[in-house]
Write a protein that binds this DNA or RNA. Sequence first.
DNA 1: GCTTCCATGTAATAGGTTACATGATTTG
DNA 2: CAAATCATGTAACCTATTACATGGAAGC
Lengths: 190, 190
Amino acid sequence: MALDVRILCLGALSQADASGYELQKAFKDGPFGHFVEASYGSIYPALTRLTDEGLVTFSEHTQEGRPDKKVYSILDAGKASLVAAISDMPQTDKFRSEFLFFMTFAELMEETQIMRLIDERIAIFEDNKARLDETGNDVSTLGQKFVQGYGRAMVEASLKYLRENRALVEETARGKNRPPLKDTVKVNQS
Amino acid sequence: MALDVRILCLGALSQADASGYELQKAFKDGPFGHFVEASYGSIYPALTRLTDEGLVTFSEHTQEGRPDKKVYSILDAGKASLVAAISDMPQTDKFRSEFLFFMTFAELMEETQIMRLIDERIAIFEDNKARLDETGNDVSTLGQKFVQGYGRAMVEASLKYLRENRALVEETARGKNRPPLKDTVKVNQS
DNA sequence: GCTTCCATGTAATAGGTTACATGATTTG
DNA sequence: CAAATCATGTAACCTATTACATGGAAGC
């Protein structure tokens, strides 16, 4: 698989040296955050293996008041490996959404639950948006800007859709003389 | 995990009886297509297990000119199980994009490769859009319409962003007296 | 004639997550 | 005083993918 945790680590290390701990944070909150994820249980073994393969090195840093850490740096072989990886054709995105699956069965839920689902969704995307704006400052290359812009476009489109349809669902749930819910979903047909 | 293949199968079977083969097709091309996926290697064992647990049954259908098939139906216990599953709070979406990861390292690629990447992406989304319009006819419930509309909104936002930025990247790649690529990415700031 | 579609199923393998173990320090 | 942050690592587990096995019929 082209996008395993090892390649992820190489990608992050190509931009800045980091420890395993920092890599996890970077995947979670950094500019990769919205389309990538990895746990410590996969990052640490990946770094060990990358070291064994001669793609990265590390130096140990002793810190006062904090645990020691290993700061990894990418080697030329690692850079070559990254370039090779991004020369393959990318697989199609994997998007797995429990929210959308749940919403498919909206008729099995109560209105209050549906609204709660949508509201939480909106809150999550507002968070995402805020985080994108925060991290906006430390992106510099064309690629990073493109990716960030893409993320922002998606978040904004999601929020727009959710807000428009939230209002419609709410209205319909309140009034009883109105046409059935299923005819009121507002779809943005281009 | 709330959204494993077993729940996926229950969800699909709550809407219509189907064989394992048909379920895979439904996940791939049907109304779930854009946010769910499952292979035969996971569906068949899942159906066996659901049967053992008394959540579904099947009847064997012998067909002329075609292999026999087992058509599965959801039982009341299965429906209850599905309702229980969608009562949990959904996990946040998992979105894993090789395309975006690759694009992050655009400076390591040649312009032609970047353009190829973007063009293929656009083609994929146009396909998705066409498929959404095709399957648009057999969705009927509020939930299905909501989910479909969401998918359409995402696809359209993606296409819009890709097209706008494709043009910009192309222009910048052609002219040499222009500002560097990294300053030209068009971001839709709300 | 080759490929795709129909149809089910198993085994090997890969890949990851969760939980655990450990422990000082800072923040609430 | 409890919780979160920093920091690394391992082991058990789970889940799903890939490849394989099988085979007729229909479409190109």
